[in-house]
């Protein structure tokens, strides 16, 4: 029944011969077609968790199961949309970015078919007509749309989104959230979304995983049944917001853990190569 199962997942890094626990004992499962968000403060290890699921990093212990099969390598069944704007290949046009993904990961050989499908997905993200643009000619929001279209075109079972709107301005971000919701509804894809914005988590997801601490643990999982489309001024929104804030705020001011967190951040930065 469950599409993705995380079983007692832990991850630590070795930095200067010191072991840094990033997250610990994470168990989660997502059912097909659900929109799940992991929300937590920066540095709590939620991004690393997503990277483990994507297969970019190996968990120290525990297992990841996709459809009951272990997933420990990157795979096109788990496509990732990143936060950074440079995730598109700059030497390919918008169309080529998608057709290339279709060819190598979708296994489609016929050029016409590739093209038709790519245009279909560009249509889905509202970028019809931008086929022959190069990424540097697009705005940040448009780049993220192309990234979403490319990820979807490969027809993954689950879409892993690592703060995809984190670098956008507030206005663009709101628009993108609404569109992502529509895309999700239209395609029926399973989405695991990482954000540090409580508002974004409430607006988008069915289930909200509160992730916090050093090392990061699942504090609680809250299911969100507010009717869609959601807006911040709707009934129940602020109640949920307060509840989430409470869960997250409780550990926020534990100052004695700050140095450790900085080390974790450094470790994370090193692994990411930034």
């Amino acid at each position: 029944m469950e599409e993705l199962i995380l079983n007692r997942l832990s991850k630590h890094f070795l930095v200067n011969r010191k072991t840094i626990q990033v997250f610990e004992d994470v168990s989660l499962s997502i059912k097909p077609g659900r929109f799940m968000t992991i929300v937590g403060p920066s540095g709590c290890g939620k991004s690393t968790l997503l990277r483990c699921i994507a297969g970019f990093e190996a968990p120290t212990s525990g297992s990841i199961l996709m459809n009951r099969k272990p997933a420990n390598k990157p795979g096109k069944d788990r496509m990732v949309v990143f936060q950074s704007f440079d995730q598109l290949f700059p030497w390919m046009t918008v169309l080529k970015n998608i057709t290339y993904a279709l060819r190598v990961a979708g296994g489609i050989r016929e050029l016409d078919l590739c093209r038709d499908q790519a245009i279909e997905y560009l249509d889905l993200v509202g970028l019809r007509g931008f086929e022959d643009f190069y990424p540097h000619q697009l705005s940040g929001g448009m780049k993220q749309r192309v990234a979403i279209a490319r990820a979807l075109a490969v027809k993954p079972q689950i879409l892993l989104m690592d703060e995809p709107f984190g670098s956008l301005d507030a206005l663009t971000r709101n628009g993108m959230q609404r569109e992502l919701e529509q895309i999700w509804e239209r395609t029926g894809i399973t989405i695991l979304f990482v954000t540090h914005s409580i508002e974004e988590a409430i607006l988008l997801s069915d289930e909200i995983v509160v992730f916090q601490g050093q090392p990061g643990r699942i504090k609680t999982v809250i299911s969100n049944s507010l009717p869609r489309p959601r807006t911040p001024d709707m009934d129940g929104f602020s109640k949920l917001w307060q509840e989430l804030n409470l869960h997250m705020g409780l550990t926020r001011n534990t100052e004695d853990k700050t140095p450790l967190r900085r080390i974790t951040l450094m470790a994370e930065a090193e692994i990411l190569g930034t």
Binding site: G55, P74, M79, V80, F82, D86, Q87, Y100, V104, T274
Partner: peptide, 23 residues
């Protein structure tokens, strides 16, 4: 090269050779 582009390549299932040549 931005590491994300390499990860996109790995995500798409490119092998070592293809990753080198195409990314």
């Amino acid at each position: 090269i931005p590491p994300t582009q390499i990860e996109v390549g790995r995500n798409l299932g490119l092998n070592r050779f293809k990753l080198t040549w195409f990314v």
